[in-house]
Design a protein around this nucleic acid. Structure first.
Length: 213
DNA sequence: CTGACGATTCACT
DNA sequence: GTGAATCGTCAGC
């Protein structure tokens, strides 16, 4: 069930390559990210977590996306860049939310990582989040994910294949019945697009945020 | 330049 | 369940 305490050895996984991200259906990639491991290595501090909740943002045609209608600004520009790039932005003036850019250049698809299950460096994550009690909120919710893994707005634009932030495959595969799809959280402003089934979760995982249906 | 607001979280009632 | 925190971003003037 849980891999808490396991040490992640480099021989045990493969870094996801460009072709993983360079695909046209953002919802398929969002679903396939479940079970992959998000790793950060900042200043020799290694932390990682298994992705258990994601949301797809379908670019120009998705009212919930920052790039709706191909809106290009300083902030959204990275979404028009290479697949496999980090898009990190500040939300509510407090939270740094981490996204993965997908599809080819000029197509601004992105996937929000909303929750991970801690794998490596739990003590470091606890320090970063200043949580006195170690519980499921450590990496539950997109704000907490970034805080625990040490990801900030200035990391936007990093290449997830080469940089201090990587996503890897250690071979774990969830069964179909372990997964669920729901509407996205916090996108009521998107009108009809708020009803799209673009949120992917590992059903029974305690780190998944919000509703489970 | 200004004002409104957000892909959230947490403490409180 | 309600509301505050807190600031970069963006549209509009």
């Amino acid at each position: 069930m849980s891999n808490l305490g396991n040490i992640l050895m480099e021989k045990d996984y493969e870094v996801l390559g460009r072709s993983f991200y360079d695909r046209s259906d953002v919802t398929i990639i969002a679903r396939e990210l479940l079970g992959k491991i998000l790793i950060t290595r900042f200043n020799g501090e290694i932390t990682s977590g298994r992705i258990v909740e994601t949301e797809a943002y379908n670019g120009a045609v998705d009212r919930a996306s920052h790039a709706y209608n191909n809106r290009r600004t300083n902030r959204t520009e990275v979404m028009f860049g290479k697949p496999g790039t980090a898009y990190v932005y500040l939300c509510y003036g407090i939270h740094h939310l981490f996204n993965v850019v997908t599809n080819r250049e000029e197509i601004p698809h992105a996937i929000l990582v909303r929750a991970v299950e801690p794998v490596t460096g739990i003590d470091i994550m606890q320090d970063r989040t200043r949580k006195k009690v170690l519980d499921n909120t450590l990496t539950r919710g997109p704000g907490n994910v970034s805080k625990a893994l040490g990801i900030f707005r200035y990391h936007t634009g990093l290449d997830l294949i080469e940089s201090e932030i990587q996503i890897v495959d250690d071979g774990l595969r969830y069964k179909k019945k372990e997964l669920a799809v729901t509407t996205r959280i916090g996108v009521d402003y998107a009108g009809p697009d708020a009803l799209l089934p673009y949120r992917y979760i590992v059903k029974e995982n305690p780190y998944v945020s919000g509703k489970r249906k």
